[in-house]
Design a protein around this nucleic acid. Structure first.
Lengths: 215, 215
DNA sequence: TTACGACGAAACGGTTGCGTTCCGACGACG
DNA sequence: CGTCGTCGGAACGCAACCGTTTCGTCGTAA
């Protein structure tokens, strides 16, 4: 799985920590394995039926737990999904440092393309994307996840290239990010091509480099 | 609206033309205004609640017609949406011919960006996109619509540039298309930036031109 | 003038999910 | 060894849609 939670460590939107009255209790504590089973079930459900059709009953069914176990942890489908998404967001990609813009881009693409063509991602992301258009909270969570996963790294790469004098200083960074992220996303998620032709990523990195140098 | 149908002209997936027994009938014919009201309602419903949550009852309610009026025309939600999508697909964009790759791209972007930031499109497209991952029929219809609306034009532009010797002949056209379509889509649909900073499209066209020349 | 069929409205029985409640069982902590 | 709270399971009443059927109305082509 993606993240391991220390038994009670979460705060915002995670499994709820409520104000314990006096004595937290004995061995009647939320079981971590149940929590994890639910999370996994949400992922699968999200991928197969999508957010809109996803039901608490379905999740519990798939996880092999009672509905009560779910409601004990999250107040609603929305909270559940927000938690899940924020969990994904946690993993910050390390910025590559190959010493050249093209090399950095190439490495970024290597990682991103693997992530994007992972069935879970390529199913769930557009789904939440669509949902985000109607739900600001999902939009925010998703932005955060995508931003941290991609944009931040891309920004570092560009800044490094600026520092090396490889590209014009003070270039339009917003546009640079679009040039970096757009094409691969388009191919992986929109066109949904199952496999990238070999040499694709290299050529893409080269072309993108030229594009950014022209800014 | 997008397309005007001659009273009975459709075939594949449009309002159903069934085998009339002997006499088509008198003035008891499907009313075109009702058909159009339903189509419009589907658009709005699709934009506000999305495909998954959209219900026939809701459509009829919004259109101010009876459920029967809908079922008389389309067998299911799926047929209804497939019809709608194919209707969009009809409109083929004319390829610009400015005499230069950058000029052509600039014009393409002008048109595309307007289309993409139209609320209807920016809401509906990602929704159907997500749905397409689960439904091959929707996927096909959507591909057709997007392909005709974008890729075909983009391909012509690239071919023209090849013909002028502006770019290397025999370049990787697949990649070229991604470079052309990706960034604007990313910004408009994924990032969902409400307004493009001025000068954006011009800079994008210039950068993309350089990228393609590097292929 | 007649007959056909679309029209909106309402109701049909059936399914699914909602969020809540009660249940007996279990198991670790005090 | 008793208490506490989670466990899965089942049922609650309520709501929304499903796809179909029935109804009386209406307008036009024959």
């Amino acid at each position: 799985m993606l993240v391991r939670m220390t038994t009670n460590a979460t705060n915002a939107d995670g499994p709820q920590v409520r104000p314990r009255r006096r004595a937290p209790a004995g061995a009647a504590v939320l079981r971590e394995d149940v929590t994890e089973a639910i999370r996994a079930a949400v992922f699968e459900e999200l991928a197969t039926v999508g957010y809109a059709r996803m039901s608490i009953e379905g999740i519990a069914r798939r996880a092999g737990v009672g509905k009560t176990a779910v409601y004990r942890r999250w107040r609603s489908k929305l909270h559940l999904v927000l938690d899940i998404v924020s969990v994904i967001a946690v993993q910050g990609l390390p910025a590559p440092e190959t010493g050249s813009l093209e090399g950095d881009l190439r490495m970024l693409y290597e990682v991103s393309s693997r992530a994007l063509r992972h069935p879970v991602a390529s199913q769930i992301i557009p789904d939440l994307q669509a949902e985000a258009a109607r739900n600001p909270e999902i939009a925010e969570a998703l932005q955060k996840a995508l931003k941290q996963g991609q944009e931040e790294v891309a920004l570092k790469i560009v800044a490094a290239a600026e520092g090396r004098g490889e590209v014009r200083a003070g270039l339009n960074e917003e546009l640079a990010l679009d040039l970096i992220s757009g094409p691969l996303y388009w191919r992986s998620v929109v066109i949904r091509s199952p496999k990238l032709p070999k040499g694709y990523l290299g050529a893409l990195a080269r072309a993108t480099t030229e594009a950014i140098k022209a800014l």
